[in-house]
Structure formats: structure tokens, C-alpha cells
Design a binder for these strands. Structure first.
Lengths: 236, 236
DNA sequence: CTTTGTGAAATTATTCACAGCA
DNA sequence: TGCTGTGAATAATTTCACAAAG
């Protein structure tokens, strides 16, 4: 982002310990690696909360996740001071803070695009709703299922999903169409004004800068597992 | 051994007071960050191959994935020299090499544990088979589905899966049981001698050092998406 | 005692930049 | 020209280690 150009006449004060490139925003942003862990912390903290525990230490939380206590403290340090020395962190307030950071202290409306095996499974996945992600509609091209419902969710024709997206305030699309239709449907989703796409197809999809994509590829996960297993064989 | 693709070598806290001598391992191992990209390269290369292209440059491949060409070359550099200056990389031989590295130049047998919505969807997921991951059995506790088949895959009673695991040479387990049963079933999977677990439950599972786990958590993915979308809102 | 918060160090990952080859 | 392969530089991330606080 900020590139230390070192132009011809820049004449940076090299003798100083500080680099001269602190022109950007002052609120330090949270490192990507940390953000990926925040969801894991949250999931674990809710487990502690369900067991009635009110405080937790960085060592405990780190042990749960297989990371060091220092890592946990460093991560939390990016967004303030919460812990009490000698005690640990308050489970309840940490949960609230994490939800606020992750922007899940609100509700999000989502829709499933493509009601095949995976789409159907996700429509029946109760965890989304309890996490504040409400699947309020599903879309497909198959006339034989259009008009039917899965749970409390009606399946609409893909032809007119643009109307439903705005009418229902749908912000996320969950892409479960066949691989070959992925890009085409993604284009339509973008055109309809969706802000984020959760992509379950094994295809990278191209979207503009206004839309975010997170992909879940089952085969990729299995490949990583195969590699890990094979490596453990060699090492141990 | 490695857990969840998170954190460093997740093992016990080996605390060396001093790192006086730096004993380097003979064969340099491939960085974790690189391994995670290898699957992506492979997926993209197969796309190029299906279009009849025989060579591809690091710039093209990087552009596909949104990373720099230098990154691509550095990644490939970890396991030899393949490219031809002025030309690029041979798509075919690069695919073969990546499959060999990822240990998917062979077949793996897997079984689904828990035939609910997600388990059923995965049993019908054709991509696993074409990638060399063969789901050869499914297990459940529901008497009403035991004995039936999904596709070419029979559903057996969870009670005697240990026998089937060894008889069928099953190495991977795909864990799709309800959250509360996750750890218990995982324990049984480990006891049955499985080498790897693909965990679709929203619970961290504890396994010994002999078993690897890769987790897929749909809610976690949505949370990451929510964060990204909200951040894009602020920044731009 | 335990635990947090954080500079400093260490490690890991990415990018730059260019020699050398086709 | 277009491209790879790779040292060197830079950036990002993790760990160490310890003062301060409950």
C-alpha cells in the first residue's frame, strides 16, 4: 500500500530509528492473521460461557486452540485492554467485544443461490440463524422446485431474484450452483447489489472491488488433509 | 499432528531457554503458506489444461489467483526448477508435480460419519471421486437409514464401523455428526485407526498426535465475510 | 503465586530487482 | 522481447521475556 518510494530527492533520515512513512491512517488496523483467529476465539469463548465460566486466561484459551498465550494476548491487544492481571479476561465482555469487531453484533440477511445438495444442506443448517445470519430466500432455475419451501424459506425463480434481493434487504449470497454456472450467477449477484458472496463452488469467481468473496472448497480441504497426513507419516 | 491449519507447530510448548545452535534440517520443508497455495495453483492449472493451454507464466497464474508473479515463482522454487525462461511452465508436468507434492497422485478411501444434511450432500459431491478421494462407506446411528444406500455408498451402523474401516482400507473420516457428538465420534474414529479427519462440526476436536484434522466451519466463513464487507464499507 | 500488556527479538512470508536464458 | 530463478530487502507475524498488577 504505502510504498517507500525512495525517490531521487527524498533524503530520508536514515540515522533515525523511525521510518518516514507514517502518513496513513492512525487507527491501526487489525492484522489479517489476527482476524482469522477472532472467530475461533469467539467460538471457544462461547463454549466456556456455556459451561458457566466467567473468566478465562490467555493460557487456557491458547491451549484450547493450540496457540501460545502470548499470541492470544497480542491479538487482544490490538483492540484495547480487557484483561485483569492475575485473573484473566471476562468471558462475557470479551464475547461482546469480539462480536462488535467482527460486525456480527447485528443481523445479516442472506440468500442461497442454487438449491442442489449443498444449497439444501445449508438451508437446513440451523447455526446460521443462531449466529445472526438469516437465510431469507433461495433461488434456482429448476421449475419443479420453484415455489416450494425448505424450512421457512421459499424457493424463487432465479429469473427475478434481483427484485427479491432489494425487497428483502439481502446482503450476502451463498453460491451453490454448478461449477459451470458459477461466474455467470456471480455476475448477476453483483449486479443485484449484494455485498458479499460465500462461494461453495470450486471455481474462483471474479467480482468487482465492491464485493467481497470468501470461498469454501471441500476438495481443497481434503487435499490439505492428505498432505498433512502424508507428511506426518514421514516425520513421525 | 498439525491441527486445523492454524497456528504454528501446534505441539507442546517446547521451551528452549536458548537457541544456541541452529540445526537446520536437511531437506528444506515447504512453508505452510506455500502448501496452502499449491492446491489453488493445481485447481487453476487444471482449468488452463482444460482450455488446451500447454504452458503458463508465473504472471498469468498469479493474476488468476490475485498474487504476484514473484510469489508464484518463489513457491515453485521450493521443489525444483520447472520453468523455461521466456516460455513459462509446462502445464502438464506442473500438474503432475503438484499432485505428487500434495500426495494426491494416489487414491484415498474415506467414510462419512453422520448422514444428516451435510453428510448427505457430501456423499453426493462428485468432485471428491474425480480427485481421487473415494467415499466408500457412511455410518450413522439412525436405524431407519442403516442399510440403505446413497449413490453407490451403503450406510452402515455406527456400532461396527471399526470393522469396516480396516476391511475397506479407510484412511480419512469426514465428520458430519451433530455438534454434541463430535468429540465422542472423533475418539472412536481415532481408535479405529483413521489417519485424518475432515471436521464439519463447529467444534474443535481433540485427537492424538497420530491423526490430522482439517476443519470446515460454515459459520466461521460467514463471519469472515461479514468482517470483510463491513471493513470495505468503512475504507472505500 | 498468577496473569496481563508490550517492547524487542526472532522467525516467517512476501516483494524487489536483476542476472541469465530462450 | 518475455520469462525464470534467486539473493537481498522488506514486511508481516510470532515468540520471548519481563515489568507491573491482582
Amino acid at each position: 500500500m504505502v510504498r517507500d518510494g525512495n525517490g531521487p530527492g527524498s533524503g530520508l533520515g536514515i540515522q533515525l530509528g523511525y521510518t518516514a512513512t507514517q502518513v496513513m491512517s492512525e487507527r491501526a488496523s487489525i492484522p489479517r492473521a489476527t482476524v482469522k483467529r477472532l472467530s475461533l476465539y469467539l467460538r471457544e469463548l462461547e463454549l466456556h460461557q456455556s459451561r458457566g465460566e466467567t473468566t478465562v486466561s490467555s493460557r487456557t484459551l491458547g491451549g484450547d486452540l493450540g496457540i501460545t498465550d502470548a499470541q492470544v494476548r497480542r491479538d487482544f491487544g490490538y483492540f484495547g485492554q480487557f484483561g485483569q492481571p492475575g485473573i484473566g479476561y471476562s468471558v462475557g465482555s470479551l464475547i461482546l467485544r469480539l462480536k462488535s469487531i467482527l460486525k456480527i453484533d447485528r443481523e445479516w440477511n442472506a440468500a442461497v443461490f442454487g438449491v442442489g445438495n449443498i444449497g439444501r444442506a445449508l438451508l437446513n443448517y440451523p447455526r446460521f440463524d443462531s449466529k445472526g445470519f438469516h437465510i431469507v430466500a433461495a433461488f434456482d432455475v429448476d421449475d419443479s422446485i420453484i415455489g416450494t419451501s425448505i424450512g421457512s424459506c421459499e424457493i424463487y425463480s432465479a429469473a427475478d431474484f434481483e427484485h427479491h434481493v432489494s425487497a428483502m434487504g439481502i446482503e450476502f449470497g451463498i453460491l451453490c450452483v454448478p461449477m459451470l454456472a458459477a461466474q455467470e450467477v456471480a455476475d448477476q449477484m453483483v449486479a443485484a447489489g449484494l455485498r458479499g458472496i460465500l462461494n461453495f463452488t470450486p471455481r474462483r469467481i471474479d467480482v468487482g472491488d465492491d464485493v467481497d468473496v470468501v470461498s469454501v472448497d471441500f476438495s481443497l480441504a481434503l487435499e490439505q488433509l492428505a498432505y498433512q497426513v502424508a507428511m506426518s507419516n514421514e516425520d513421525g
